[in-house]
Each structure stands twice: as C-alpha cells, then as structure tokens.
Design a protein around this nucleic acid. Structure first.
Lengths: 282, 282
DNA sequence: AGCTCTTATGAATCATTGA
DNA sequence: GTCAATGATTCATAAGAGC
C-alpha cells in the first residue's frame, strides 16, 4: 500500500475545512512562536497569541480521531527580563476548548544557543505538550523503547568530561550501578524527557525541530498507514519523518516558499530512496 | 564569623511575622505538593492549592530583599489521566501578587521513579521556578560554572570516574578559584536544565530534593553569610546545604518530627565537622 | 577504516540606538 | 513615552579535512 504525502498552501484554519471530522491520528507541530517583530515569518504578538491560536486548534480538535494525539512544541520567550505567560494561558485555554492536557514532555536541547546574560543562563529546553481528546488514546510505548546494547555502550565510550561531570558527578551516585542495571535488560522505556540536539544545519531554512523529534512521537502515537498532520509545516520535517515511517501525512503552510521547498525536497528524497534505499530513514 | 542555622516549628505564614521586611537573600523550597489524601503531611487539594499558597508567598515577598530570589521546586500531579493545572495557575497568581517570573529551570531527574502506565512514561523532571522582586537581582554565575567541552577529553581517559568526582567535589568545597585559575577558559556557564539524580533513599524520610540542588541555587543566588530561608523545610536538606556553604539559614516546618529530626541531624553533622573536617562539604 | 582537529551555526537574549 | 532593528555575547554538535 502506497503512502500519501500532501502539501497544502494556506492558513491551516481554512485548509482544514477540506477534511472530515475524526480523520487524523496525530497532529504534531511547532507553530510560529510569539514575536514582537512584525516583519518576520508568523510574527504574532505575545498578548494576541492565545486568540490567534484557538480557532486553529479548534479545527485540530475536529479533525483528530478520538484516539488521536496532539503534540505541540512551543517555548515562551523572555522579554524585559521575564518569561512570558502566554504558553501557560494557552494550556488553560486549550483545556477550556475541550482538550485533555495529558502530559508535558521536555525536549532537552543538548546543543542550545550560546549567549550570556546577567539574569539567566542559556535556554536548553522546550515544551512538548501532549493533548488528547479522550483518556483512551493510542500509545505504542514499545515503539520507542531504547535498545540498551546499542545505546549505552557507545554513549559511555563517547562520554566526555562533560557528560561525566554534568550528568554524574554532581551527585556522585551511581552511573556504575545504572549501567549494571541496563546491561541486564536489553530494552528500556524512555522517560518524559527527550534528549536531542537541534539540527546543525546545512539547511537553507531554519529547521524547526530535528527529524528525530517528530519521528519519536509518530512512532509512539501512530501505526503504519495512519494519518499525520502538521498544520504549521515549515520546511517539512514532520512530513519526511512520517513518510520514512510509512505514515500518510498532510502538511500545511501559509508561505508558498516553504510549500515549494518541501515539495522539491520531498521529490529529491524520493529519488534518493530509489537510488539508495539503505540510506533513507536515517 | 559564625554561621547561624535556625529551625522554627510552625506554619510559615505565622512564623515569618517574626522577621523584618527585606531580610532574606534567598527563599528556596519544595513545598508539599497538592494531594487529594487528607491524612498525609500537607495534604492540600489541587483545587485549593493556589489559595493555600498565596498568603504564604505574600510573606516570602515581604521578607525577601529586593535583590533576592525565590526558587520554587514543584511539579503538578497527574490525576484521572490528565496533568493538573494548579501549578500554571499558581505562576499566574504569583505574578499578580507582584513577583516577576524570571525563569523556569528544569530539574532533570536522571534516576526517576520507576513504574509503567498505559498513557504516560516515567516522570523524569520537575519545575524549578525562579521568581524575583526586581529585574536587578544578585546572580553569581561564576559560582556554578562547569568544565567545558574541549578541555578534559584526553585527561578524562587517563583519570577514571573517581578522579572526576573528586575533582568536582573539591570545586564544590571551595577550591573552585584555584581550578578556575589553572584552566582559565576551560569553564563554561551551565544552561537552565539542571541534571541531578534524586538522592537514592536509604534515608528514613522521603527526601524532597538532593543536597546538590539547593547547593547549586545557594551558590548561584547568595554570597557567604547571606540569609537563606526554607519555609517548608522537611528533612532539612536546604539548611545543610546552606551551612556547608557558610550561609545563615532559617528552616520552618509545621511538623515537630521534622524539626526534631533536622536539629538532631544537624548536630550530628556539626559533630562530623569537628571530627573529620576533610570529609565535610561532600 | 578510525582518529584528531577545524569550522560553521542554531526558534536566544539583552542593551543600545534610532524612528 | 513606545516599538523595531542591530550588535555583542558564546557552546554543543555535525560535517569535513587531514593523517
């Protein structure tokens, strides 16, 4: 069975009217973050962010299956020395809209942006908010289990001073013990903290999240041939992850450039798939 | 100059009336989390949590210096398959009360509680909310610097884990300046994700946080002989960290058992200090 | 192939300048 | 006064070069 991958150009609030209720199994997206500047892409002011978001999330709620999930990657900006509260308000508003706030995953960005300020350290994490329509939803926990052999050993080898000092010695309690536990089992369930580097890019566009991030959630919340939606597609990372995992997908973006770029990149990757199947999906 | 360490038994809302305005440099605490069970320590219902907290935080605001910081360790419970929203509401309410929500640090618990549920993974993180009274507050970023990437790669190979741990704990106990001089540019500032294991509990009480956690924030937000307050003291981890770092401290707890336990443990540690000064500060 | 070393750069944030 | 744009700060990665 073939996998469909569709790119739609337009505002997701409008475009989603094409789809029936209860169609998608997963909505996963990294929307444009709030920004005071008007001339950047998607510059929505922090104060207006919730009002801007709600009519769109209402459509997400409609087109999502009762067993589906909605994963929202977002992080509030700091302005005038303080964190904005619009993300907190958005969570509360989404619950009012009918969503269940099932979980908050943390994306730990190992290679976060550098910088130094008098009142804060570098921001190394973002929220991955997990909303559902019902308490019974699809979750394939086994699909994201971490293979111990493949993971722990090279990790240990590559364990620079950073890892040891930062992860371990601050406490002094047992990496050794943990390792021993890991070796006994071959697979372990992950936690709600996802460690991933941002994609260091030869990309010509600001990639929202690394491929591995949508991949992780697509494996976790969908099966093969399920339907995945990214209503703020950007450069199309979600679609590539979905396609590689044999899920049908729809990406929507308001900018023609992004849509064209995604379509083109996608065709190139399809070509690569044909040429060197082994390297695809990496 | 001697360092004072005080334990007060009572409700912090009452006990703090003893203190003048603008007295403390840091308030750091892990309050009793919301809990539906009434007969456990500090069983406050989620729905009532904000109302219960606000009169107390009003006192924190009063006794904290304008340059001081308030660090709140908290995490919302999941109930009936959903995350509670009282922590979000608390943040919004604290801002209304006059606090600035300066930052949200993530405590990544490397060895989080085991368990398996159908709709979520193990919870491996907690919030460390940083509030201040003003945009100009005290922050000693150099006090929590960590060794940098390029440097120890070859050295670490030769060293082995124990050496690294010992190196780090020496830094913690006051040799930091020397180390910093040796390696000049080899130290980097940390991020807002704090990696620490929970203290593996052979303790007879559920330790709220590991010693290293208050230690980190005490070094970051206070100088020697500053005053540290933990209004929900519990087993007294904050006080031990403060004392080891030569900060004056006040701990308040409503339970006599905790107060007695902390006093007793504290005297024991003082005794250890007298016996084997070298091992203290570990 | 496996190493070391070098280089570019990423949803950042704040202070300053200018409209 | 408000708002928008610019410069300075700075580190964990991947990718590429060289051996």
């Amino acid at each position: 069975m073939r996998v469909e991958t569709n790119v739609l150009q337009g505002d997701c609030e409008e475009e989603l009217h094409r789809f029936p209720d209860d169609f998608f199994d997963l909505v996963i997206t990294s929307p444009p973050y709030a920004d005071r500047r008007q001339n950047t892409y998607g510059g929505v002011r922090p104060e207006e962010y919730v009002d801007w978001f709600l009519p769109r999330s209402e459509q997400f709620l409609r087109v999502l299956k009762p067993t589906g999930s909605f994963v929202l990657n977002i992080k509030e900006k700091a302005e005038n020395g303080e964190r904005h509260t619009y993300v907190l308000e958005l969570i509360l508003a989404l619950r009012q809209q009918g969503w269940l706030w099932t979980e908050e995953y943390i994306w730990h960005k190992k290679n976060c942006y550098p910088g130094k300020w008098p009142n804060r350290f570098r921001d190394a994490w973002e929220r991955l908010l997990h909303f559902t329509k019902s308490r019974k939803f699809k979750m394939n926990q086994e699909a994201v289990m971490v293979p111990m052999g493949d993971w722990a050993q090279p990790r240990l080898k590559a364990l620079g001073k950073n890892d040891v000092v930062r992860f371990d010695s601050q406490v002094g309690s047992g990496f050794g013990k943990n390792i021993a536990n890991w070796v006994e089992r071959s697979m372990a369930y992950p936690t709600n903290v996802v460690h991933m580097a941002t994609e260091c890019g030869n990309k010509n566009h600001s990639a929202a999240f690394p491929l591995a991030l949508p991949e992780w959630f697509i494996r976790l919340f969908t099966d093969e041939h399920d339907w995945v939606l990214d209503p703020f597609m950007g450069s199309g990372t979600t679609l590539r992850a979905a396609s590689a995992l044999r899920r049908n997908s729809v990406g929507i973006d308001i900018l023609k450039e992004y849509c064209a770029l995604t379509k083109r990149q996608f065709e190139e990757e399809q070509y690569v798939l044909f040429e060197e199947p082994a390297s695809y999906g990496k």
